[in-house]
């Protein structure tokens, strides 16, 4: 019994890293992924902050899952998530001010990161506390790993450094465009293509991930509408 439980917890954790990687497979949380990955260190900072919020909000929502009425669940989730985000923001400001400086406005914007609301809706509202926290940890680690990968590629190619350590200085001139916005879109596109190639899917995700988003119903309505009118 204990053995089985361990195995399933490991499954909840590991799915977030590869099979259901929130960034590369589910394509959630695109805004921070593109915005803060100009440096590998920023990617780590953002990843850790988001992971903390994910674990805490998943735990809180899972605890309250039988108390929150269905009708007001989205506002309730948003309030809880915003609370944890503000808490993390204050802690970061007090104890890691350099991270606060480099993440700027993207730190409070974790509130509207669809990974967090998505996991609350998809997983935490239906599962017990421990699995929910493990799910949050897995998703957070997957998010961090994907951002670290992107941050490393962009920093090495675009600035010739990695975590601020000069790597290619004097050998190759850095390709500046990789740390500018266009480079962000480009590297992200290539990574999504690569991950779908490696995972053996015939085609990459058609669109941004709506699967995990509680608003997906409206979203697909909007898309259908467009197709009819167009």
């Amino acid at each position: 019994m204990a053995e089985k439980k361990k195995v399933s917890l490991w499954k909840e954790f590991s799915k977030g890293i590869i099979k259901e990687n929130p960034v590369l497979c589910l394509v959630l949380g695109t805004c921070p992924t593109l915005a803060v990955t100009t440096q590998a260190s920023n990617a780590i900072g953002m990843g850790i902050a988001a992971t903390l919020v994910l674990i805490c909000s998943n735990a809180a929502i899972s605890l309250l899952r039988n108390i929150i009425p269905d009708k007001v669940r989205i506002p309730a989730y948003i309030t809880i998530i915003a609370g944890f985000v503000t808490m993390v923001q204050m802690l970061v400001k007090a104890y890691a001010p350099s991270i606060d400086e480099s993440l700027g406005i993207y730190l409070p914007l974790i509130v509207v990161n669809c990974i967090i609301l998505g996991r609350a809706e998809m997983f935490a509202s239906k599962n017990r506390v421990i699995p929910s926290m493990v799910d949050g940890l897995g998703m957070g680690v997957g998010f961090t790993a994907a951002m670290l990968l992107m941050g490393s590629i962009r920093e090495i190619l675009g600035a010739g450094t990695w975590f601020g350590i000069p790597l290619t200085s004097g050998v190759v001139d850095p390709i500046l465009i990789f740390i500018l916005p266009p480079g962000g879109f480009f590297v992200f596109g290539m990574l999504v293509a690569l991950s779908s190639k490696l995972s053996g899917k015939k085609k990459a995700a058609e669109d941004v991930g709506c699967a995990g988003c509680p608003l997906s119903e409206n979203c697909s309505k909007v898309k259908k509408e467009g197709e009819c009118n167009g």
């Binding site: 009708k71 007001v72 506002p75 309730a76 309030t79």
Partner: peptide, 10 residues
């Protein structure tokens, strides 16, 4: 009930 729960959470 929803109002009270939401209020308490806030």
């Amino acid at each position: 009930k929803p109002i009270v729960v939401l209020l308490v959470i806030c």
